[in-house]
Design a binder for these strands. Structure first.
Lengths: 232, 232
DNA sequence: CGAGATTTTGAGAGCCTTCAAAGGCGGTGG
DNA sequence: CCACCGCCTTTGAAGGCTCTCAAAATCTCG
């Protein structure tokens, strides 16, 4: 993203001194728990979700290595979201005071965190527009593209084929659909030759058409970071 | 929110040196325009929205005095959202470099901006969950509660009755519904004695029931700001 | 190999949309 | 001051997208 100075590097590394592992399916933070630490995700993929009182679940975001978790601990006394491991994971917990110190000592890191916030915000608003104004097929296609692109950021070997790592129920909870309907949409995408499936593996057989069907924008691309403050 | 030192105050005031007025309905930023300045909203209410290529619009957020606008200019070369005035407005434009300077000189303001980001993020995820997993009536009720609460933050005189300032079409674009269905939901809320309407004015006649119907959480309440860095 | 989770498929129902048109309201010009 | 016009609200009817319910098929893992 942007080159860090040695002192910035070591400041970030101090956030990652301790480690904690989670099994697939394990819960790191439960909704409404009193907030405590924040985390950096070091290995694996996770998700955040909320439970509504009609019993349904909405998945808010998928998390990948390098993402900061539970940042809302900065602000709220009770966790607004549940954070769950989709695969075996390693996270590094740190205290709010550590965040506070980093902001004071390293304004450029503060700026980078704001950049990160804005990217996340853009991704959230894309999902919002998708849920509000696009049909089921587009929403499912968008999730597939998002997952592939984020997975590819950590593993350059990934091309048009990848292991999704989500159940159809989870895709449904992320897109506001039922698992049954997700299944039908996947089948339709397959019949239209936009994707191919075998096991948990998805292949994009017509990425351009899929991207169009999904209305997809990669929010990690086309950044403009020229404004960042000088490093200290 | 948190007391500011005189030097912090003057730093923020420097962001508000210039002023620009907008008429009701006017556009401050258009989606895909090259990004330039950022703004502080000083007076009036605004909204951000995106247009999808099926022609429909999704309203992402409503903006009130004190909110920062076009923060995505920090990150993207093209504006991801349109920003429009719902009422006559006054905004104060400032440059990205000014933001950069504030972050460097005033870590506590940097921290407060992050707090603000987190609140906005929580509000967005609430909307996401509403669009994905709640029926139309709840979504409309939630918008009503959100607007009343935000309006009340700037005008303590507002109680259970207020002027909404949105057309039913706009409510629809915010909730992912059609104007026609919004109309029916409003009528239903009225028939159930949760609200009363006359002209553009809404009155909450059973706020508790409305809040329950809406699944509403006030994200500006119950903040915990004890961790903020020392002021300089 | 068996149990539970996940995927797949079918049929019917319901929520919300689309299409259409009438009624209100405020503003503008004569 | 009134008529007219555009925008917004309201209402009805029909249709479609997605859900619910149900059950069979397949997969995963102990």
């Amino acid at each position: 993203m942007a080159a860090l100075t040695p002192s910035e590097h070591s400041a970030l590394e101090r956030l990652e001194e301790r480690e904690r592992s989670l099994r697939r399916g394990g819960t790191l933070v439960r909704e409404n728990d009193p907030t405590g630490e924040m985390f950096v995700l070091c290995k694996g993929t996770m998700m955040t979700s909320v439970l509504l009182d009609n019993g349904s679940r909405q998945i808010l975001r998928f998390l990948f290595p390098g993402d900061m978790l539970a940042v809302s601990s900065l602000v709220y006394r009770k966790a607004p979201e549940t954070i769950t491991a989709l695969t075996d994971c390693v996270v590094c917990p740190f205290e709010r005071s550590a965040m506070s110190k980093v902001l004071s000592d390293h304004p450029r890191i503060a700026a980078l965190i704001m950049v990160y916030n804005q990217i996340e915000r853009a991704a959230l608003t894309d999902r919002l527009a998708a849920l509000g104004r696009t049909p089921a097929k587009a929403r499912v296609a968008a999730i597939l593209m998002e997952m592939r692109n984020r997975l590819r950021m950590m593993d350059k070997a990934i091309g048009t084929s990848f292991v999704l790592g989500l159940t159809q129920e989870e895709i449904g909870d992320a897109t506001g659909l039922t698992a049954v309907h997700v299944n039908r949409m996947l089948r339709q995408l397959e019949e239209e030759k936009l994707i191919a499936r075998e096991g948990g593996r998805i292949a994009f057989t017509n990425e351009q058409a899929l991207s169009r069907a999904a209305n997809y924008v990669d929010r990690y691309a086309n950044l403009d970071l020229g404004w960042l403050p000088e490093s200290r």
